[in-house]
């Protein structure tokens, strides 16, 4: 198992390297003169030329690529923003945790509500609970999240004053700043998790081992939670992974509405301003975060299903057998 984890971590390196090279190369082809962006529209020719040399824009592509890669991987230096001259790595270190917390809180709410909803729908298939649950899920997918965000703000912040509408806070009390954004963000993931749970549970409930469990005299509730749900978890975990990945980059609208300074607003702002170092650095960090998340998901698979765990552990044994034969 440990070997599997190490192997996966080692695989991450070429992947991140590939992302870096790809992003760097694409940015070279984008229009816009970095010197002009940095110095603004009032700069003179001489200043612009000097800046170009300073940035190394006159060097050949491979040298620039090599410099960039060595900066990123050996010095952990993602450069500075062209517009504000602020160090990108430290800004990301500030902002990434916020995006991660938002994603995690969103997932907790989405799956915490979605899984029970899906189970209810599956166990009462074609009855009113099923229809109501699935309609709720449908509404969740259909509602635009910015509309929901504004409604939540009006209700919980302006009218009731229970939760803050914007910004971030420190410490444990800071979680309250994430609740409204997470609620606005979770509608889609909630719908997906409910539907996925329902369909996975329906598959599993028909299985023979569920009949075996019932024939043993296990209480229905135990049958659903201990026997059925545990087996239905695999597709649900997959959905969780996909939702998490989407949330890492895509919470931009929510971050903008709630003034949550996270990765989404950072990168989108940089794209709008043509602040390429931020786009590059942000993409790399997101790629890393995503890879780690996928690794955790795969490990979660192993924790839930012993057959997969055996697969991970035995993949090297199979190779040995081949060599001998």
């Amino acid at each position: 198992m440990l070997r599997y984890i190490v192997k996966r971590l080692l695989w991450m390196i070429p992947i991140i390297l590939g992302v870096t090279i790809l992003v760097f190369t694409m940015m070279i082809f984008c229009p816009g003169d970095p010197a002009e962006i940095i110095l603004g529209s009032t700069a003179m020719e001489a200043d612009l030329a000097a800046k170009r040399v300073e940035l190394g824009l006159d060097k050949p592509y491979l040298i620039r690529l090599a410099t960039y890669i060595s900066d990123v991987f050996f010095h952990f230096d993602l450069g500075v923003s062209w517009i504000t001259n602020v160090d990108i790595m430290s800004t990301i270190a500030d902002r990434m945790p916020r995006t991660l917390i938002l994603a995690v809180v969103t997932l907790v709410i989405a799956f915490g509500l979605g899984i029970p909803l899906g189970i209810t729908a599956a166990t009462h298939q074609n009855k009113w609970q099923d229809h109501v649950s699935m309609v709720l899920a449908l509404i969740g997918v259909a509602i635009p999240n910015f509309w929901l965000a504004l409604l939540l703000i009006i209700l919980f912040s302006v009218k009731l004053g229970w939760l803050p509408a914007m910004g971030v806070g420190t410490g444990l009390a800071g979680i309250q700043y994430y609740i409204l954004p997470a609620l606005a963000n979770c509608a889609g993931a909630l719908a997906n998790s409910a539907r996925q749970t329902r369909s996975a549970m329906l598959d599993v409930i028909r299985a023979d081992y569920i009949t075996t469990a019932r024939s043993k005299g296990v209480a229905e509730r135990q049958v659903i939670i201990k026997h059925a749900l545990k087996n239905a978890l695999l597709p649900i975990i997959t959905t969780m992974g996909i939702s998490f990945g989407r949330m890492l980059g895509g919470a931009m609208i929510i971050e903008t509405i709630f003034s949550l300074p996270g990765m989404g607003s950072y990168i989108i702002g940089a794209v709008n301003n043509r602040d390429y170092p931020i786009v590059q650095g942000g993409s790399i960090m997101l790629a890393i975060a995503f890879s780690i998340a996928m690794l955790l998901i795969d490990l979660l698979y192993a924790a839930v299903d012993p057959r997969i765990k055996a697969q991970y552990a035995s993949s090297k044994k199979r190779k040995k057998v081949k060599a001998v034969a």
Binding site: I153, V158, S259
Partner: peptide, 14 residues
Amino acid sequence: LITEASQLGIALET
């Protein structure tokens, strides 16, 4: 620091 204009309005309201 509130970048979204309507949020600025809401902050004034509340």
